[in-house]
Every structure is written in structure tokens, then in C-alpha cells.
Write a protein that binds this DNA or RNA. Sequence first.
DNA 1: AAAAATCGGTAGCCATGGCTACCGAAACGT
DNA 2: ACGTTTCGGTAGCCATGGCTACCGATTTTT
Lengths: 246, 246
Amino acid sequence: MEQIEQMKQIKQDGLKKLTEKSRLLSQCSLFQGIEPVVINEMLNCLEPKSCRYKKNDTIALAGEPFESIGVLLKGEALVIKETAAGHRSMMALLRPGDLFGEIVVFSKNSAWPATVIAQEESQALFISRRKLTGQCEQSCTWHRTIIENMLRIISEKAMMLNKKVEYLTIKSMRGKLSTFFLEQHRKAGTTTFRLPMKRNELADFLNVSRPSMSREMARMREEGLIDFHLETVRIINAEALRDMGE
Amino acid sequence: MEQIEQMKQIKQDGLKKLTEKSRLLSQCSLFQGIEPVVINEMLNCLEPKSCRYKKNDTIALAGEPFESIGVLLKGEALVIKETAAGHRSMMALLRPGDLFGEIVVFSKNSAWPATVIAQEESQALFISRRKLTGQCEQSCTWHRTIIENMLRIISEKAMMLNKKVEYLTIKSMRGKLSTFFLEQHRKAGTTTFRLPMKRNELADFLNVSRPSMSREMARMREEGLIDFHLETVRIINAEALRDMGE
DNA sequence: AAAAATCGGTAGCCATGGCTACCGAAACGT
DNA sequence: ACGTTTCGGTAGCCATGGCTACCGATTTTT
């Protein structure tokens, strides 16, 4: 009798786990717009590999061949790029629900371009490229959704990179700042707006040094182009800023 | 009798045109791996809009909403980015078979990010996003191929942009050159290789000025890191180069 | 073959911006 | 409330690299 109760418990735990997993996945951009219940069915068809990692374990190693997209389910992981000299630079911090390897899965060159390392005890899911595009006989409805999601995700990544290239291509400090401020202004719709990043992060985004950036912002204030205090920026002479954009 | 002959002729001309179009499309990355004959069938289902343009006509205008991917069939077109100041910069030159708008079709923000202008008498094909992902009842086989192509195309674009960002992020001249030379070396497999671009283009790619680049290359030669003559470059001290990569 | 255009190398000038160092203010942790 | 950390501003030094100008070589045009 006790045994039966125990088994029921195990089964319940299993179900709870499954629903927890699909609930987590329903938050993930790859499964956007799909009900957790449906995700459960899909997983049977997608046959994902689930892997657990301890702290400092290597989840993916740059250069290794691969054919799967990764989803971080639990924990925290770092995406790291190593230069030939062995110098490491952090590229991204992954949190539960984040994808990795999404750019590379569908390109010809199927080797991890970066290394992913678990920062704490983590769990990741890998879905193979074939399962993702492959049409299983039944339930093609959600398959279509997942492919549309995939297309959207990669497109948005490309758009983001494109924007980044635009900023990096601008040579002068003032040009970068002007372009950035005007973009924020356009987004906010008001002449006064708040910067979405700290100075350090902004300098990093524009690929300039923080002190040099502050210096230039001060100059622009002196010249009556903008005014600012901490995160708050007000555009005074929009025309002049526009003339700086390259 | 004569009328019948005439009609036959017209029909033949139509067929010739169709096969010419599909022959052209079979060269296009979007239809890679699909037989021209099959492409003909597909076109019925994809319902592309075909448009003709005269020289200097606007094929697509930045900011305008859109939902279609473009294929240049005939002629030549420029992709142009206009800054707020009205300053124009060329982004790409399109030739027959080239796609445009491929990054944006599947992103949420569906507005042309750049302007496309015909440089000569041209013809372009537009295929709507829905038709591209939509599954028509029959012939899902090639539909799958076209979606896989689409995924590959966007992924590769993202990879390319990613690589570009990597180069642009390197701050020092020497770092950029070292990284570039090492990459060429890796690709070629030999210590001596030929540069795939002219100096002007390389300087442009690395986002530096041509004379400064030449100067730095000369210095690197003096220091015994590399040797070069025109397009031919030989790596002498690979280790030292590696240490420069940021 | 002459003229023009393109291409690559070199030199000198100097503006831009990176870097270190330091300071005060704010935010955070305990 | 206190110490600690993070954040932003400022200053001075000077290396990096942009820019113009010029030259010779090669290629293309006519």
C-alpha cells in the first residue's frame, strides 16, 4: 500500500517537473506563443537533450562542431570569446530562458564560435537543427510557430548587430553621442529623456573610454547642444546634433 | 491559321520568359538546391509581385512599412542609408540574384531600414513574408527547402555582422591588422598568402584610414612581424601577432 | 602611345581620444 | 550610522591615428 502511494508521488513529481520545464520554456523566446501544455507534447517530438552542469563546467567549447541550439533552463552561464593569445573577453551573461548558439545552428560553418561556461549549478537543453526544421507528420501547426519564432529571433539578432555596426562605424566621439542621443530622443518622443545605461555601459557600447566620453559630453553642454544631469539628458540643439551624424 | 501560329509564338515566348526567370532564381541563394522547373511551380504558390524600375527610381524607401523580401532580377541597385542630416552613405551594391530586406522581413519592426535605388533599368521580385512561411497544402517538400535556405541566409548574415563587430571592436590599428592577417593565414593554411582586398577596401573594412594602415604595416615589417609586397603577405612572427589580438 | 585613373607607399602636422589619477556624491551593505 | 563600493566628473599627459599632400608604379582608357 505504501509502495503504491510512493509511486503515485513519484509520478506526480515527474508531472510537476514536466510542467515546470514547459512553463519555463513558455517564457523562452523560442516557444513564444505556445501553450505550456502544447510544449509538453512538442518535447516528445523535438527530442531535446537535457544536460546538467556543475559550477565552472564547460557547456560548449569554441571550435567544437555542433548542430544544436541551446536553451539555458536553470542557473547562470557566461559566453566567453578567447583570442588567439588566450585572452578572454565576456560576451554575454545567460539567464534561464536565454538561447545560445542561435546564430550558428543554421549557418554552414557549424562550429561553436564562443565558449559557454556554467557560473553555478546549471541545466541546459539542446534541440538539434534537424528536429527544429524537420516536419513531423502530426501537429505541424506548432512546428510552423516555432520556425517563425526562430526566423524572428535570428532576424532580430541581425538587426541588433546591424545597429551595433552602425554605431561602431561612426568615427568621432561627438558623432557617436549625437547619434545615440537622437535615437533616444526619437524613441522617447520628448526632448528630455533618461539614458537606459550607466556611463560605463554606454562607453562600452560606443566602444570609447568613459573619461573621454564624459569630457565630450561636458563640451557639448558648454556649446549649448545638450544639457544633462546624471541619467537625465535634454536635447537643446537637435539640428546641430543631426549634422554630427557622420 | 496565322492567328494560331501567332498564339503559339506568344505562348512560347511566355514559357521562355518563365524559364529564364526561374533559371535566374535558381542562381539565387533563396532558391538554392531547387530545380528551375520546380521553381516555376513554386512561383504560382508564392505569388510574387514583379516590379520594373527605370534608372534612379526608388525601389524601397527607408521608413516605409513592408512585409516582403526583395530579389533583384535584372539591373543594378544601390542600398543607401541616409543620416538625419541627409548625408548619404552607400551600404551595398545589388546585382541580379541578390536579396534585399532579408534581415528585416521577419523582425517585429517591419520598416525598411535603408533605401534602395535603381542604378539602371531594373526589375525586382517581392515575396511576402506570409507566403514564405505559410504552408500551402501541396508540395511542402520545397517549402521546407526554402525555409531552410531562409534560415541559412539570415544566420550567415548575422555571422558576418558578428565578425564585423569583432573587428570594429578592436581598438588598436595593430590589433586589427594582426587579427586580420592571422585569420587569412588560418584560412589559407600557409604562412604566405594573398590579401583578398585592395588597400582601400581593407582600410574601409577595418574602419581606419588608408595611409595610417600602410604606416602601421610598414612598422610591423620593420619589427620583423610580417613581410609583404603589394597583395602578398607573409607571416614571420605569428606568436607576436597573436599577442596583439586585444 | 599618350593621357588619365587607380593604386600603394611615405612624410609631417596635429586633433582626437585613451589612460591614469583623483575627487566628491550617491548607493549599498551590515 | 558607518564603512565600502559604485558611479560620474575633471585634469593632464601623450600615443594613436586621421588627414593632406606628394610621389612613383601600374593599369586602363582613348
